[in-house]
Design a protein around this nucleic acid. Structure first.
Length: 259
DNA sequence: AGTACCACCTGACGGC
DNA sequence: TGCCGTCAGGTGGTAC
């Protein structure tokens, strides 16, 4: 489920493949995946090179050499695939970019919850969507300020893209598990020490997850990530993991470690 | 501001 | 075997 670490991995993937290649042709296999018309997408991309990329939260912005940006969001099942040739076609490829070196970059998204968009101003794009600061891009002091005076649960706040950008259901569980904080805890019930610990674990978890390519199977065994299921046990204390509802969202936690 | 609920979407999975 | 309900999850909308 692409969250910040997954998107960071996709960014690195794009940077090492499609970057600096010239787009000869754009194919829109399913227009539902894109927020602009196929015509606009083609007009903006054709003949252009992808010259850089930046990530904000779960958004990947690809800068073109005409000053415009291709905006990629991966929803829950979004992926990128870069491969040689244009003929072979894989499942759920919604948009394909054909480069003049003979390679193809495919935006793959089975569940269609992602989106492909264009903007000429990433800052404005993010502002209009009221996106908060990227989760890897603010200080501990700023974190404390962001949460100051909020009434909801800590998990809701971590997942709220308008406050902090990049964390979803899975990694918010991981962060709170490692910080040993019950996800249902109200923010105003958290002391400064706990909030600092959450901040620290947020940075740690996101950074480490990028290191193991955001692949749950490669996560350390002491993490919640590979055990996030009913019937599984806490890798630290052995107690049965619990599933609780928070804002109609499933959260997994260890009733022994997190209190 | 926060919450509750709905909708979007499709593939996997369990029950019968 | 195959049909059907349910779930997963990010996001946006609406009503309270």
């Amino acid at each position: 489920m692409p969250e910040l670490p997954d998107v960071e991995v996709l960014k690195k993937y794009l940077d090492s493949t499609a970057l600096h290649q010239q787009v000869n042709h754009v194919e829109v296999a399913d227009a539902r995946a894109i927020s602009v018309t196929p015509r606009t997408l083609k007009r903006n991309l054709k003949g252009r090179k992808m010259k850089g990329s930046r990530r904000h939260g779960k958004f990947l912005m690809v800068e073109l050499d005409n000053g415009r940006y291709l905006v990629l969001h991966f929803g829950m099942t979004g992926q990128l695939k870069y491969y040689k040739g244009h003929d072979e076609k894989f499942e759920n490829e919604r948009v394909r970019f054909f480069f003049d070196n003979g390679y193809t970059l495919a935006y793959v998204c089975s569940r269609m919850l992602g989106e492909v968009d264009m903007t000429s101003d990433p800052e404005k794009f993010l502002r209009e969507r009221r996106m908060g600061q990227d989760a890897m891009d603010f200080s501990q002091e700023a974190f404390l300020e962001l949460l100051e005076g909020r009434r909801g649960s800590i998990k809701s706040a971590l997942m709220n893209q308008n406050i902090i950008c990049g964390i979803g259901n899975v990694y918010s569980d991981e962060i709170l598990y490692q910080a040993k904080v019950d996800p249902r805890t109200k923010i105003k019930q958290l002391g400064k020490r706990e909030l600092k610990q959450i901040y620290k674990k947020m940075r740690y978890v996101l950074e480490k997850a990028v290191d193991f390519q955001a692949d749950g199977r490669r996560a350390p065994r002491t993490w919640l990530l590979g055990n996030r299921d009913l019937g599984e046990k806490c890798p630290r204390c052995g107690e049965a993991l619990k599933r609780v509802q928070i804002n109609s969202r499933n959260a997994f936690m260890c009733p022994g470690c997190q209190d």
